[in-house]
Amino acid sequence: MIKVIIKEKNSKIWSYEISGHAESGEYGHDVVCAAVSVLGITTANNLYKMAKIRPLAEMESGYLKVEIPITLSNKQSENSQFLLTAFVNALEEVVAEYSQYIELEHEVKKEANNA
């Protein structure tokens, strides 16, 4: 099973992690794995090419972690959220169709009050 963890802080997505294998078909013919891989890698590439952000990324077989840096301009932050929200929306569509092969989890953290 593929597990995707979306990490949010202060209503903003700042990281995603994809791990595991769907095993929904033979190696090389696994459409669920292919869909999730394409979404994860394309989002990381678009953060770099379109939002001009160099995300911190780690990738190996069956694993991808992408994290955006803390310091971003307002425009970069806006663009990154647009791209990351599109990524989550697309993943939700894959989960709706293939829930037996993929699990989507949201980790939401709130900023502590400075009072």
Rank of each mutant, 00 (worst) to 15 (best):
residue 1 M to V: 00
residue 2 I to M: 01
residue 2 I to N: 01
residue 2 I to P: 01
residue 4 V to D: 00
residue 14 W to T: 07
residue 14 W to P: 01
residue 15 S to D: 09
residue 17 E to D: 08
residue 18 I to C: 08
residue 23 E to H: 06
residue 27 Y to V: 07
residue 34 A to H: 11
residue 39 L to Y: 01
residue 40 G to K: 02
residue 40 G to E: 04
residue 40 G to L: 02
residue 42 T to W: 09
residue 43 T to V: 05
residue 44 A to I: 00
residue 45 N to P: 02
residue 45 N to T: 07
residue 47 L to D: 03
residue 55 P to E: 07
residue 55 P to C: 03
residue 55 P to W: 02
residue 56 L to V: 10
residue 58 E to G: 10
residue 61 S to F: 04
residue 61 S to L: 09
residue 62 G to L: 09
residue 63 Y to T: 04
residue 64 L to S: 06
residue 64 L to P: 04
residue 67 E to I: 06
residue 69 P to T: 01
residue 75 K to D: 13
residue 76 Q to V: 03
residue 76 Q to K: 08
residue 77 S to W: 10
residue 78 E to M: 10
residue 79 N to C: 13
residue 80 S to R: 01
residue 80 S to Q: 01
residue 81 Q to M: 03
residue 85 T to S: 15
residue 85 T to W: 13
residue 85 T to V: 11
residue 85 T to P: 06
residue 86 A to W: 04
residue 93 E to Q: 13
residue 93 E to C: 04
residue 95 V to C: 03
residue 97 E to F: 05
residue 97 E to D: 12
residue 107 E to R: 12
residue 107 E to Q: 11
residue 108 V to F: 05
residue 109 K to W: 13
residue 109 K to M: 14
residue 110 K to P: 02
residue 114 N to F: 12
residue 114 N to Y: 15
residue 115 A to M: 10
residue 115 A to Q: 13
